[in-house]
């Protein structure tokens, strides 16, 4: 890397892990903020189900499959998703969960996806699956990263899988000869890794790598959030500035530069 002399040793190590593995997991920078999000998600779920608010939000979320049917799951998900995104503190808090990692991997002038997504995967439910994909294939810029935050411990099929950078290119080269995303999954399956993340940690991953999920065969329900971040001046794809992304950090020098006009009126 050309910039290693300009980074702290811990930043170098983090950057190298991201390049080598395609993801990094770290403890949340703002643990109190994460607990606040988890608590609010549990309250919104309880409101939807007409239950009293629980003193144990983790248990409430992890065992939600005992209280909601697959048929009602998307309505519950939308209720919690809309409720969280309506909170003015929610997106700034979400950013703070991974701020130091985002700034090391992406930069410090940033835009953020306008709404933070929410996934809920009940044990045994095949209706909420995300087939093997790279976000870039559906219009995201390769300059984006995803910050993925579980609200419960996730492991094995309760988590998501990611294809390592070392084999992603080779698998992409085979893709055009395959008919469907399910065929693609069967091709990459031996190489895909389910990422274990305890509650309290966050993951930042390279969304150009193939990833997805499978039927959750573990005992608890998966609750996870995801949101895209990118350097504000890096190239955009179909997910455009304004309609999909909005600026969250713009530095004074950039503001000055964008407003500057050279002197005019010369006629020589």
């Amino acid at each position: 890397m050309t910039d290693t002399d300009f980074l702290h040793a811990d930043e170098q190590a983090l950057a190298q892990r991201f390049i080598d593995d395609g993801f990094v997991t770290t403890p949340a920078d703002d643990r109190a903020g994460l607990d606040r999000i988890q608590r609010r998600a549990a309250e919104l779920a309880a409101d939807y189900l007409k239950l009293p608010h629980s003193n144990d939000p983790y248990a409430m979320l992890d065992t939600i499959h005992t209280r909601v049917s697959v048929d009602d799951l998307n309505a519950l998900r939308l209720h919690v998703f809309n409720g969280l995104n309506a909170e003015p503190w929610f997106r700034p808090t979400y950013f703070r969960l991974a701020r130091s990692t985002i700034e090391t991997i992406v930069g410090n002038e940033l835009c953020m996806q306008r709404r933070v997504n929410l996934s809920i995967q009940l044990p045994g439910d095949s209706s909420s699956l995300l087939a093997t994909h790279s976000d870039v294939w559906s219009g995201d810029s390769p300059f984006e990263v995803v910050v993925w935050v579980p609200l419960v411990d996730v492991h094995r099929t309760k988590s998501m899988y990611l294809l390592p950078p070392s084999v992603n290119g080779e698998m992409q080269d085979r893709m055009a000869s395959l008919r469907s995303a399910e065929e693609l999954y069967k091709t990459i399956k031996p190489h895909a890794t389910f990422i274990e993340i305890p509650y309290g940690h966050v993951m930042l991953f390279n969304q150009t790598l193939m990833h997805g999920n499978r039927v959750n065969e573990e005992a608890g329900t998966r609750w996870s959030m995801n949101c895209r971040f990118k350097s504000i001046m890096s190239p955009y794809a179909d997910k455009r500035f304004g309609e999909f992304f909005e600026p969250i950090l713009l530095r004074p020098a950039t503001r000055v530069g964008m407003q500057y006009k050279l002197p005019g009126g010369f006629h020589g």
């Binding site: 998307n74 087939a131 870039v136 294939w137 559906s138 219009g139 893709m175 055009a176 395959l178 008919r179 469907s180 995303a181 399910e182 693609l184 794809a237 179909d238």
Partner: peptide, 21 residues
Amino acid sequence: LLSAAEHTMPGSYMVLEDILD
């Protein structure tokens, strides 16, 4: 039911094939 988004790569209909399946 929630939409699936086709790939941006020209000529790819992999997502449509998944819906047909």
